[in-house]
Simulated assay, not measured.
Amino acid sequence: MGLVTEMEYRGRRERRFLGRGTAWLVPLVLLAAIVTVDLQTSEKLRVVSWIILVPSIAAAICGVGATITFALLSLVTYVAVDAAFPERYRAGAPDFVLLALGGVLAVIASVVRVRRERQGVHMRNIAETTRRTVLRPLPPNWGGLEHAGVYLAADVDARVGGDFYDIQPSPHGTRVLLGDVQGKGLGAVETAAALLGTFREAAYHEPELATVAERLEVRMSRHRGHTAALGRYDGDRFATALLLGFPDDDPHTVEVINFGHEPPLAVGPGGVRPLPGGERLPIGFGDLVCGTRSGDPQPPACRERLDEDETLLMVTDGVTEARDSAGDFYALLPEITRAVCDDAGVTKPRRLVRLVREGVLRHTRDRLGDDTTVFAMRRLPEPQSAPAPASTTGRPSRS
């Protein structure tokens, strides 16, 4: 999904003069067919008045310019065909007035339709800009990770919802966040943007992953206080999330803090395994564990082993709760396991994301019930250091 550039928008406006592609052929063929039938039938069976359908169809599928053209062409054709018959068989002025009125109404309808289409394109552009602001594009191999991701909004026109993810390199290793804000609409988008902003700063500056998690919890509390001050009740807003850390000093370890989310899956040639650990309540429920209600500290990040050939797969509940027409859930783990057994190359992030995306769309028949995010990553191989040049100490000079 990309932004519509100004050049593309102008191109669409120019193409609307004739409509979408060859859509103008439909009213043209209809006009020719009506004229042919009227001229080939007897004088007692006149169908020339059916020309009123031509500008009406043009208004539905063509641009404003094409609709005006067909409205005028219909009037001229009506006069010419009607004049070819004897006077007593002519449709006459009443049908001409009816055709002229129908042409005017068709042009008005076309103007309204095209204006609404332009407004729709404008709103989709705004939604796309919002999506890129919340879910910023990630450079290839960002933070030393080979990654791939796809976001599918349940509301196709909105193109943005409460799912969020990001990668943040830092002096303390690369940190990854993926989550799903409870609820829908602009409130969920605002909350996702607030959490991502905090993550991008805290993940860079804080040496401990647990401290990043605490900053996210504080940000949720502040955000809810802000919305409450604005008069919008947002007190029950929360987010499930996965917070991961890839330490620079240990290339075979990943740190995991799970805020009530589906655990990440380590997918490798040897199979598929979930990575539980660091289990916490969703972001926004931290006051139930710490603070005045309890003195128990939050669990630290859990360190898990991650092999070089393993890819971490993270999904939101749009995947795990996807249902088919019979109400059955999408079987994520069995499908990935079966695919890995058939082809070990499917563990690459791009192929793995494509596998899950196509599987969910096939399972739901393209009818998503919730925003869906699939994100996969694995460490890039460490560059091999170049061999040291051979020492020339003690060798005689050849000069």
Rank of each mutant, 00 (worst) to 15 (best):
V4I: 13
E8A: 15
R13S: 10
R13V: 11
F17V: 12
T22S: 14
A23Q: 12
W24M: 08
W24N: 05
L28F: 06
L28T: 09
L30S: 06
A32P: 00
D38A: 03
D38K: 01
Q40G: 08
T41V: 13
E43R: 13
K44D: 05
L45Q: 15
R46H: 13
V47H: 07
I51A: 11
I51P: 03
P55A: 07
A59E: 10
A59M: 11
A60I: 14
A60V: 15
C62F: 01
G63V: 13
V64Y: 01
G65F: 02
G65I: 02
I68R: 14
L73C: 10
S74V: 00
V76R: 06
A80W: 02
A84V: 04
A84Y: 00
E87T: 15
R90S: 13
R90M: 02
R90I: 03
R90N: 12
F96E: 04
L98K: 09
L99W: 00
A100Y: 04
G102V: 03
V107M: 05
R115N: 11
R116Q: 12
R116G: 05
E117I: 05
E117D: 11
V121K: 04
I126C: 07
A127M: 12
E128I: 09
R132Q: 12
T133G: 13
W142E: 08
W142V: 04
G144Y: 02
A148L: 10
L152G: 06
A158N: 09
R159W: 00
G161H: 01
I167W: 04
Q168A: 15
P171M: 10
G173E: 09
T174P: 07
R175P: 03
V176P: 06
L178K: 02
L178I: 15
L178G: 01
D180T: 06
D180N: 03
V181T: 05
G183V: 02
G185T: 09
L186K: 03
A192N: 00
E206I: 05
L216D: 03
E217G: 15
M220G: 05
R222E: 14
R224T: 07
T227G: 09
A228Q: 14
D234F: 09
R237D: 07
R237M: 09
A239F: 01
A241H: 12
L243D: 09
L243M: 07
L244I: 11
F246E: 12
D248T: 06
D249E: 12
N258Y: 03
E262P: 08
E262H: 12
V267T: 08
G270E: 10
G286D: 11
D287S: 13
L288V: 01
V289R: 00
C290E: 11
P299G: 09
P300W: 04
R303H: 14
R303F: 08
R303P: 05
D307G: 15
E308N: 00
D309I: 03
E310C: 00
T316H: 00
T316L: 06
G318Q: 00
T320D: 02
A326G: 14
Y330S: 00
A331K: 11
E335P: 04
R351S: 11
L352D: 08
R354H: 08
V356C: 01
V356T: 06
V360T: 12
L361T: 14
L361P: 13
R362Q: 09
H363N: 10
H363I: 08
R365S: 15
R367M: 12
A376W: 01
M377I: 15
R378D: 04
R379K: 07
A386Q: 15
S391V: 07
T392C: 03
T393K: 12
G394W: 07
R395D: 06
